[in-house]
């Protein structure tokens, strides 16, 4: 089955990242690189999203397009990237998500 792992950042995580020195940030960056390398055979596609303030949301209702600045959910948790994985079942997807070394929230959704 195919799943998308959606990575979400929190304000707290953003603050922690901010507080890191260059060495620590480099280390965190490398941990993410290692995670992608380790699961490369299962990952079919992935992307990192630019920060939430670069988002534009369009609401298409009643024939109108209302354009707003920012992500569609105004919240403390913001999707910051995704990886598509091809695995046997949810348990395998969960095992991969569990070892994700960066932002603290991962939503797992099956893809049709």
């Amino acid at each position: 089955m195919k799943y998308v792992l959606m990575f979400a950042e929190t304000e707290e995580f953003a603050r922690e990242l901010e507080a890191m020195d260059d060495g620590q940030r480099q280390e965190a960056f490398e941990a993410v690189g290692r995670w992608f390398a380790e699961h490369a055979s299962k990952i079919t596609h992935h992307a990192h999203l630019r920060p939430a303030e670069t988002a534009t949301t369009m609401r298409l209702t009643g024939g109108d397009a209302i354009v707003t600045d920012g992500p569609f959910v105004e919240g403390k948790e913001v999707v910051s990237g995704y990886a598509e994985v091809e695995v046997a079942d949810l348990d395998e997807a969960m095992a991969i998500a569990r070892s994700w070394p960066a932002c603290p929230i991962v939503e797992i959704r099956p893809i049709d």
Partner: peptide
């Protein structure tokens, strides 16, 4: 069924 929850002992 839809989320692919497996049928097995972990």
């Amino acid at each position: 069924t839809d989320a692919g929850i497996p049928y097995r002992v972990p």
